[in-house]
């Protein structure tokens, strides 16, 4: 009995340290996961750190996080500046995953059963441009990222705008479109600036989210979102209890 209590006590001491470690290490928000990765919380729960995706990658682009890499231990990630995803059509990394952490269903067209892989549906992350360091936005001609993009003219376009500094030239600035960008990172690798001025971030970091209640009134179809809006307004302030008052029209303003 004493032995059992003592064992439990020792295990509990270890468990507390352990729990602290897990809490601290779990979140590394900028790890870029392989194509087909389920959302991050579910990915971390399902991944058994086996490295099959890393072994399957024909370009050896995927890295399995070692302790000290600053990523969740044993999970796969990309370093785009070094080795971006080459967007293989057969998506060997996702296909080999035994645990469902990488789900080919997320990178396929068609229904389950007769689904066809489509790497263009990969959402590894989203390329983001720093317009202050991007030399194209200075007015210097560079389209390295645009040319490197495997989804050229959809994921990255070059939009000409007037160069106000000279008054007679164009600035050919690259623009990323989130509905087509797979986050493969070819642009980040191609970028000519010292530290890449276009770089891939996980989508949940790179993107905001407008609520269903803001509608583009000039867009005929956008009204639909309002009908489908599911979220209730839950904001509660000290004023919430009072009834709305038309105070602007009151004389005692």
């Amino acid at each position: 009995m004493i032995d059992a209590t003592r064992s439990l006590g020792i295990a509990a001491v270890g468990g507390l340290v352990w729990a602290g470690f897990l809490e601290g290490k779990k979140a590394y928000p900028t790890a870029l996961r392989p194509p087909g990765a389920v959302d991050d919380a579910r990915f971390l729960a399902a991944c058994t750190k086996c490295g099959l995706c890393v072994a399957a990658c024909p370009y050896q682009a995927l890295v399995l996080a070692a302790p000290g890499d600053g990523r969740p231990i044993g999970t796969p990630y990309f370093v785009m500046r070094d080795r971006p995803c080459r967007m293989c059509r057969d998506i060997p990394c996702a296909a080999i995953c035994p645990t469902g952490a990488l789900d080919t269903g997320l990178v396929s067209d068609g229904e389950a059963g007769k689904a066809v892989l489509n790497i263009n549906k990969a959402r590894i992350g989203l390329a983001v441009i720093d317009r202050e360091t991007c030399i194209a936005y200075w007015g210097i001609q560079c389209d390295a990222c645009y040319r490197a993009c495997p989804v050229i003219d959809k994921a990255i376009t070059v939009d000409p705008v007037r160069n106000d500094r000279t008054g007679r030239h164009a600035i050919l600035g690259p623009v990323v479109h989130s509905d087509h960008c797979t986050g493969c990172g070819m642009c980040e690798r191609a970028c000519v600036t010292k530290k890449a001025s276009i770089f891939v971030l996980p989508r949940r970091i790179a993107m905001g989210e407008s609520s269903d209640r803001y509608i583009r009134g000039w867009d005929a179809g956008d009204e639909k979102r309002l009908e489908e809006a599911t979220e209730d307004t839950t904001t509660v302030t000290p004023r919430s209890g009072k009834s709305p008052t038309d105070y602007l029209n009151r004389e005692d303003l």
């Binding site: 352990w18 470690f21 897990l22 809490e23 779990k26 919380a41 729960a45 058994t48 969740p72 044993g74």
Partner: peptide, 9 residues
């Protein structure tokens, strides 16, 4: 914690 705890240490 929602992660395979021993696999992390």
């Amino acid at each position: 914690f929602g992660v395979a705890a021993f696999e992390w240490i």
